[in-house]
Design a protein around this nucleic acid. Structure first.
Ligand code: MN
Ligand code: MN
Ligand code: ZN
Ligand code: ZN
Lengths: 135, 135
DNA sequence: ATTTTTCGTGCAACAATGTTGCAAATTTAA
DNA sequence: TTAAATTTGCAACATTGTTGCACGAAAAAT
């Protein structure tokens, strides 16, 4: 049983072709994918609602997390313990989105009486690759 | 000529009823409004496309900035020099969104070769008012 | 291995938001 | 007051999110 199946089993999910392939796709990408991008990378035929619900399920069990983009949401595998605690960087040139490791985003000083639940940080700019190609 | 008209003039925009009222609405709110919320607060009749384009224009000239929400974008007046450099807080109870003054969010240490352009920080949690009402 | 139960999927349908083209109306400049 | 430039309303379409329900597939029970 491979890593994908183990992950699904560990989270109490049934092994279905759609789940297997979606998790595998997310495993093979270091940056966050939109639902549409995931659909395009699927070799099997899956309805977009299936992809939608599969992602909901994966988030619910903690396998996947999402971040907010200008146009909708983007999904990526939870690595390690942290969910979306990292800031994410989106290159305005190539469009790739990646988690920024070691990014110190929080704690932010919230006003008195406020309680923190979650946060979403998207930083835009240009990545190293794109900056090299056009100096 | 009131503050609204001055702002519009200063940014080289024509004075139209829609622009006047939309800017006024944003001036009277400390938190970010969705396009739909703005529409609802208008007393004059304006097509949603007009609101859409008006907001685009206001952002383009620097009068307004937007932040990303789970469901679309939210708009607020630019105060002072800073655009959306502040973090924004959204209460999951009452839904209000406000800029967090004095929030130290950046600089985030970006990897070598990366260039920063902008950032968007949305923090979710519960606000002081909501926490008082339900302790 | 077969049945039963539980869960996942496809399809249809709808909601919300974003986006564009174009003609009519409005604002500003001449 | 007229002409030029800009803004608006309307129609139309795209994208994404969301739900109900009947059917199919996976896991559990027998
Ligand atoms: Mn798509
Ligand atoms: Mn609306
Ligand atoms: Zn890039
Ligand atoms: Zn609140």
């Amino acid at each position: 049983m491979d890593t994908v199946d183990e992950s699904l089993k560990q989270h109490g999910l049934r092994l279905t072709p759609a789940r297997r392939q979606i998790v595998e796709i997310l495993m093979n990408h270091a940056y966050a994918l939109s639902q549409h991008e995931i659909e395009q990378k699927l070799t099997l035929e899956a309805d977009r609602v299936t992809v939608y619900r599969t992602l909901l399920t994966l988030i619910e069990v903690g396998l996947v997390t999402k971040i907010l983009d200008e146009r909708g949401q983007r999904f990526l595998l939870c690595r390690g313990e942290k969910k979306a605690e990292n800031a994410h960087f989106k290159c305005t040139d190539c469009g790739h989105i990646e988690a920024i490791e070691n990014s110190i985003v929080l704690p932010v000083a919230l006003p008195q009486g406020y309680v923190l639940q979650n946060h979403n940080v998207l930083i835009t700019g240009t990545c190293a690759v794109c900056n090299e190609n056009k100096p």
